[in-house]
Simulated scan of single mutants.
Amino acid sequence: MPLDFSVVLNYWPVLLKGLALTLAFTGICALLGSLLGFVVSLLRQVKTPLLRLPLTLYVEFFRGTPLLIQLFWVFFCFPVVFGLNIPPYASVLIALTLFMGAITSETFRGALKSIASEQHDACTALGLTSKVKVLYVIFPQALLRAVPPLLSNVVSLFKESALISSVGVADLMFVGQNISNSTARPVEFLSAVAVIYFLVAFPLTRLVGVVEGRLLRRYAY
């Protein structure tokens, strides 16, 4: 069968719906995971082993195991272990958020360590509470330093999200696979899916360089 990429145009609206779901999962899990990662990075600095050790195990587990296994574990094992009926969409949100939280916690941990000790001493001298210090002094500086790697994490999450098709979620990859199977044209549709992923991810990777070059060099200290 000769190649005919024009057939992709007939299914373009369906592919865009899959892309919209992929972007929705990426955005929601990136936001929730970044907030989780910041909290985890803060709690890992405490000197209490009973709190620090479980969080360290969580981070190392999700950073050291494939995301596909994490998706399968949440999707298939959570209902058995915890006796909960978790729908596919919820299991994907849980798995991607935990994965994003683990990798961003290391990003924030490095950013927090880069803040000079004089900043903490100044907060203590001014009599600021821990909540005020974290929200208005530490967090803004840590976020500024963490922006480039955080954007890189978001790009990685967007690309890794193609794995959620393995649990039956109708994202871009799932839609592309189904159409290629039903039309017997895998080259055309899988190539179109690859191009769509590239068109979304490439500008984000360029944005990382722009932010790092133009913003951090001017405002980070």
Score class of each variant (00 low, 15 high):
Ala111Phe: 04
Ser180Phe: 07
Leu163Asn: 06
Met1Cys: 09
Ala184Gly: 01
Leu21Tyr: 04
Gly213Val: 09
Leu216Thr: 10
Asn85Glu: 12
Val39Ser: 02
Gly168Tyr: 01
Gln119Thr: 09
Leu57Phe: 06
Thr129Ile: 05
Leu199Gln: 06
Pro66Leu: 00
Gly101Tyr: 09
Phe61Gln: 05
Ser34Met: 13
Thr56Ile: 00
Gly64Val: 13
Met1Trp: 10
Val147Gly: 01
Thr48Leu: 10
Ala184Arg: 12
Gly83Trp: 05
Gly33Lys: 09
Thr129Arg: 15
Phe198Ile: 12
Val187Thr: 14
Ser130Trp: 12
Ser166Ala: 14
Val14Pro: 00
Gly83Arg: 09
Asn10Pro: 02
Leu126Met: 13
Asn153Arg: 03
Val14Leu: 13
Gly27His: 04
Gln119Arg: 05
Arg185Trp: 01
Leu21Arg: 10
Ile86Cys: 05
Val210Thr: 11
Val46Lys: 14
Ala162Lys: 05
Leu98Ser: 11
Leu53Glu: 14
Gln45Ala: 08
Ile164Leu: 14
Tyr197Ala: 11
Lys133His: 06
Leu71Arg: 11
Gly110Phe: 04
Leu42Ala: 01
Leu16Arg: 13
Leu55Glu: 01
Phe174Gln: 12
Val167Glu: 02
Leu71His: 05
Ala24Cys: 05
Ser191His: 03
Leu68Met: 07
Phe78Gln: 02
Asp171Cys: 07
Leu31Asn: 09
Pro140Ile: 07
Val155Arg: 03
Arg44Phe: 02
Leu51Cys: 06
Arg206Leu: 13
Tyr197Glu: 08
Ser6Thr: 15
Ile103Thr: 14
Glu60Phe: 02
Leu215Thr: 12
Val210Lys: 14
Glu212Phe: 08
Leu57Ser: 06
Ile115Trp: 03
Ile138Asp: 00
Pro149Arg: 03
Ile28Gly: 04
Leu151Asp: 00
Leu15Met: 15
Cys123Ala: 15
Leu23Gln: 02
Ala111Trp: 02
Ala102Lys: 05
Ser130Lys: 15
Met1His: 13
Val92Gly: 10
Glu118Trp: 00
Val137Leu: 11
Phe189Glu: 01
Ser130Cys: 04
Arg218Cys: 01
Asp171Thr: 11
Leu36Ile: 11
Ile103Asp: 00
Thr97Glu: 12
Phe198Arg: 08
Asn10Ile: 08
Phe82Gln: 02
Arg218Gly: 01
Gln119Ala: 01
Ile179Pro: 03
Glu60Thr: 11
Leu3Val: 15
Arg206Asp: 02
Ala102Ser: 14
Phe108Val: 11
Thr56Asn: 06
Asn10Phe: 13
Pro140Arg: 05
Phe5Ile: 07
Lys17Glu: 13
Phe198His: 09
Ser6Glu: 08
Lys159Leu: 14
Ser91Cys: 10
Ser161Asn: 08
Cys29Asp: 07
Pro87Arg: 12
Tyr58Phe: 14
Ser156Pro: 06
Gln141Cys: 04
Val81Gln: 01
Met173Gln: 09
Val80Gly: 00
Ala146Tyr: 04
Ser6Met: 08
Leu207Ser: 02
Ile69Thr: 10
Lys47Asp: 12
Phe78Leu: 12
Pro88Arg: 11
Glu106His: 05
